[in-house]
Each structure stands twice: as structure tokens, then as C-alpha cells.
Amino acid sequence: MNIKALAARLEHLESRLAIETLISAYANAFDVMNRDLLQQIWHVDSTLDLPGFGAAGSRDDIMSMAEQSWRQMPHMHHWMANPLIQIEGDSANGTVAANCLFHDVEQGPVQVSGLYHDRFERRDGQWKFVSRRFELHYLTPLKEWVPILGSERFQVGS
């Protein structure tokens, strides 16, 4: 294998790792209410569409929407799985499955499942989200679900 081909493979792997890190950072930022981390993963002109939860047309709007979500659902747990990512130069598209457990202040515990449809761009050497759209598969109230163990930070009502 020549050096040019090896360099291209390495760049592809580094890009994929950077994109998978963005996907994980999104889940972690929402789950621990980390405003700084959430802000870092979006380009300024990015969009977020979460049918049933809200839509945002810029990074500032995304941050406002997140803060509203944190007031409505102070306990979130996202699990992201099965990322399929296609990278072409400085652009990429992907899908990732999501299963989420939320404690909504009005509905109580709910489980949400679906598929994220993502677009990413590398600008000034950094990969970030350009758009993220959630395809809701189901939202299920978990009326009888009550955690019996866990850290105090994640107990319902804390």
C-alpha cells in the first residue's frame, strides 16, 4: 500500500471517530445538562428537529430548546446504537438508532425510541453537526416504572 492510500484511510478513520464522538457527546450533553459540551458540537447555522419536542434553526435556538427540555425533562438517559456513517470529503451523512428514558415533569417516566438522521461538516478542520432530525418510532408512558436504586442525582423527584 502506498503512503497516499494509507493517509486517506487514516483520515477516513479519524473522521469517523470524530463523528461518532459527536453522536456520543450529544447524548451525554443532554443527559448531564452540559450546556458547554452541547454548544461545542454544532456549527452556528445548524438545525435540530425533534418532532413532538421542538425544532431549532440555529445553534442559539438549539441551546434554548435544550434548556426548555431540561426544565420539562430533568432526568434523561440516551442510548445511541448502530451508527451508519457515509463520509465524502468534508461532508458526511448518517443515521443512528436511539432509545431514551426520560422523566417528564407532567407525564412521568417515558420511553422514546427512534432514528436520528444526521448531516455533518468539517469546517476549519473540525467536524460538527449541520443538522439532526429525529424520526420518532414510539413514545411510551411507563406509568408503573419506578427506580429502586441509583445515585441520588438521578432519583425521580430530586
Rank of each mutant, 00 (worst) to 15 (best):
F129W: 01
V96F: 06
V112S: 12
F102D: 06
P74G: 10
R35Y: 08
K4S: 09
E135V: 05
R132H: 05
W145Q: 15
S64N: 14
G89Q: 06
G52W: 10
N2F: 09
E20P: 03
S151V: 05
S58F: 11
L115A: 03
L37S: 09
D36I: 10
L6W: 06
P147N: 13
L101A: 04
D36W: 04
V112K: 03
G57Y: 11
R35F: 06
A25F: 01
A27H: 02
A81Y: 10
K128R: 15
S131F: 00
I148Q: 07
H75R: 14
V32G: 07
A18C: 10
P51V: 02
S69P: 04
A18S: 11
M1K: 06
Q40V: 01
L149P: 00
R9G: 10
F53N: 03
G57D: 15
S64A: 14
L6N: 05
H103K: 03
W145N: 05
R122Q: 15
V96D: 01
K143L: 15
R119F: 02
W70E: 04
S91Q: 13
D49P: 01
A55Q: 11
W79L: 12
D90G: 11
P83A: 07
K4C: 00
E88K: 11
A98E: 01
E67P: 12
D49R: 08
E152F: 05
D60M: 11
A56Q: 07
E121R: 14
G114N: 04
M63D: 08
G52T: 10
A81D: 14
D90T: 14
G108T: 13
A66P: 07
G94K: 02
V112C: 11
N28Y: 10
W70F: 15
F102N: 07
A29K: 04
R133W: 03
P74A: 11
V32Q: 12
P109C: 13
Q39D: 08
V130P: 02
D60I: 07
I41G: 01
R35E: 13
F154N: 08
K128H: 10
N93R: 14
R59F: 08
I3Y: 00
L48W: 00
I41V: 05
A29V: 10
R119K: 14
L136P: 03
G94D: 04
F120P: 02
Q126P: 02
I62P: 02
Q40S: 15
K4V: 09
F129V: 05
D90R: 11
A92K: 09
A66C: 12
E88W: 03
A56N: 06
E144L: 15
A29E: 10
G125D: 14
S69W: 03
T47N: 03
V130G: 00
M73H: 01
T21D: 12
S131H: 02
D60K: 15
D60A: 15
I148A: 00
L142I: 06
A18Q: 09
Y116G: 01
E14I: 09
A98L: 09
D61Q: 09
L101H: 06
L17V: 08
I23P: 04
R122V: 13
A81R: 13
N82S: 14
H77T: 14
